[in-house]
Nucleic acid binder design. Structure first.
Length: 123
DNA sequence: GCATTGACGAAGG
DNA sequence: CCCTTCGCCAATG
């Protein structure tokens, strides 16, 4: 198969692999769990570029199947990306739907709900 | 082609 | 303990 997926402005088949990896990892996040950009970045080996993970999520809006970006928060457990959703409250709604408590734009018991890809996917 | 920004993170003051 | 700065890499202006 082929496929060039459809990553906008990904400079042809080259760096867009990074996007695929991010999407793949995020989709594997168990329901009712959350993770951080840094954790994903670290798993991909780009821990020094956690920002790129967030950047990838930006393109994830167009990715299919839709990437559960609502399960991805910053290292503080804060829903920093909620403003990028269809509505600023959508992210909280989705999390609460998975029994995840959200208080003041922050995931409650973030440490317990934290899902580490490096551990789950264990290489 | 250079300057700015960005869904982050860690370190310094 | 809170705020500011730097780093990283890619995209956008």
């Amino acid at each position: 198969m082929k496929k060039d997926k459809k990553i906008p402005t990904a400079t042809k088949a080259k760096s867009y692999t990074f996007f695929e990896d991010v999407y793949d990892v995020v989709r594997q996040i168990p329901k009712g769990r959350v993770t951080s950009y840094g954790a994903i970045a670290t798993y991909l080996g780009t821990k020094l570029s956690a920002r790129m993970v967030g950047w990838a999520m930006n393109a994830a809006h167009n990715a299919k199947p839709a990437v559960p970006a609502h399960r991805v928060v910053n290292r503080n457990g804060m829903l920093t990306g909620k403003h990028h959703f269809a509505t600023p409250t959508l992210m909280e709604e989705l999390l609460k739907r998975e029994k995840i408590e959200v208080k003041k734009e922050t995931v409650v018991d973030f440490e317990k709900l934290f899902w580490d890809p490096s551990e789950a996917l264990a290489l």
